[in-house]
Amino acid sequence: MNNNLIEITGMTKVYGEDEAAVYALAGVDVQVVRGEFVAIMGPSGSGKSTLMNIVGCLDHPTEGAYMLDGRDVSQMSKNELADVRNEKLGFIFQSFNLLPRLSALSNVMLPMLYTADDVSDEDAEARAVASLTSVGLENRLHHRPNQLSGGQQQRVAIARALVNKPPLILADEPTGNLDSKSSVEIMDILHNLHKGGATIVMVTHEADIAAHAQRVICVKDGKILSDGSDGKNHCAGLHQ
């Protein structure tokens, strides 16, 4: 059994048909090893989010194979994909995506609504509390999102992403809506997660954020420009 958590080969995603066709991804090969912290960079419209959506099992590729944790995901039904997202993936969004009327605790409990085996209310709550504690929000359990700072909201979102203990964390511009101080807090949390053995794939525009990652993949026009396996960031020049 190989140690690749993600194995993508020849992945293409086409929007539209014929002359109007847009190749959001034009033949991409990516491998991510367990425990890696990968940043994806690239100019706007280069296909980063498209790639993340497919990695996140939210979208089907037009062509190509995708093995996630040893299973072929590219051929799965919608229900199977939903189960994979629930068990294997934790999402962190740029805009947090918390449900505004629910408390931090209830927001973090959401993924446990959809687990295959029924989690009891007590277990679900205990796990959510533990998860919020791990991001330093044990004193904000019953606060609503609008009673929290942006950085705190993103930490709730991270707690939610972690609560089902998924093998892969996906973050699409997690600091995009945050000031620099909050960004540092969030990156510290991700950094610690990585040190604890988590696999993280993150999209970002900022070179200093990408610098937290071990490896920077650079995407342009739906193709991988450089894979940064040499530890250097070849993307920096593409951003202003």
């Binding site: 996140g56 939210l58 919608k78 229900n79 939903a82 189960d83 997202r85 629930n86 068990e87 999402f91 995506n97 449900l99 959401l110 993924p111 609504l113 959809y114 687990t115 939610r160 089902n164």
Partner: peptide, 12 residues
Amino acid sequence: GLRQALGARQSN
């Protein structure tokens, strides 16, 4: 959309 991302099936 969020619930679906967190693993809600269509039937849920």
